[in-house]
């Protein structure tokens, strides 16, 4: 199979009539890790949610394609089956639906009818991956995210990613609220998946995560678009100097476009 090829061209997105993303471009190929950094309120999470097709966000212009297919024409579930994955900042809790059942339904949704993954094989794979991510085996039968701590929810997102093997994975502030040990576990999970068959987009506030997941490209987002791109060194520079030098360099006074983080 060819390497994944994910392209975002001139993306414009609004929430309730207010434009948040104002012409964003991004090109991710299999094997690459891209990081998007930026202060709060610059449109990072809007980018993640609108790519996944959250109904709250309205795409008003631009193109998004995965392997040549038009993602914007697809519903959220179709995008997922096309190979897009979003590890969410605040995943929902769904009482009464076990983690294992949820992941199995998600996998089976990708299979043709009658070719569903055998139950035993599924559980063996799930337990292996849970072990790698340091997740207690009982979490398989716990209700989806219900009563999980912040760190447990994040690890659970990574577990789903490793079970579903997407072609493009977006991690939206996967590092927020994690202690250093949990951060390492999450980073290991991502690094162990790295291959030409998957491209990553890591959205983060802090450079800390990028010590453990080394990006090939770093983009800085302000005012709803990417204002500067570079390699891993850019992230280190931002960590050392903060965002203000960049704002000064670019002549930006207010970098935000939205009130919520």
């Amino acid at each position: 199979m060819a390497k994944p090829n994910f392209q975002v061209e001139d993306l414009h997105v609004s929430i309730e009539g207010k434009e948040i993303l104002k012409g964003l471009n991004l090109h991710i190929r299999g094997g690459e890790i891209h990081a998007i950094m930026g202060p709060n309120g610059t449109g990072k999470s809007t980018l993640a949610s609108s790519l996944m097709g959250h109904p709250h966000y309205e795409v008003t212009g631009g193109r998004v394609t995965l392997d040549g297919q038009d993602l914007l024409e697809m519903s959220t579930d179709e995008r997922a089956r096309a190979g897009l994955f979003l590890a969410m900042q605040y995943p929902s809790e769904v009482p009464g639906v076990s983690n294992a059942n949820f992941i199995r339904q998600a996998l089976n949704a990708r299979m043709e009818e009658g070719k569903e993954i055998p139950v035993l094989k599924f559980h063996r794979t799930l337990q292996e991956k849970m072990k790698q991510l340091n997740i207690d085996p009982v979490f398989a039968e716990r209700y989806l995210n219900e009563g999980f701590s912040g760190g447990e929810k994040k690890r659970n997102e990574i577990l789903q990613m490793s079970m579903l093997e997407p072609r493009i994975a977006i991690l939206d502030e996967i590092d927020s609220g994690l202690d250093i040990d949990a951060l390492k576990v999450v980073a290991n999970g991502v690094n162990s998946m790295k291959s030409d068959n998957i491209g990553f987009l890591i959205i983060t506030h802090y450079q800390r995560l990028l010590n453990y997941i080394v990006p090939d490209y770093v983009h800085v987002m302000m005012q709803g678009r990417i204002v500067k791109s570079g390699d891993a060194k850019l992230a280190e520079e931002l960590e050392a100097k903060g965002y203000d030098w960049l704002k000064e360099e670019l002549g930006i006074e207010d970098e935000t476009v939205e009130v919520d983080a």
Binding site: P55, T76, D77, V94, V97, F102, Q105, A106, A109
Partner: peptide
């Protein structure tokens, strides 16, 4: 939305 983001169709997500 969360269930759909993993590839589960809307009708099945609702039932689940």
């Amino acid at each position: 939305y969360y269930l759909m983001s993993r590839g589960i169709p809307q009708a099945l997500a609702t039932q689940m």
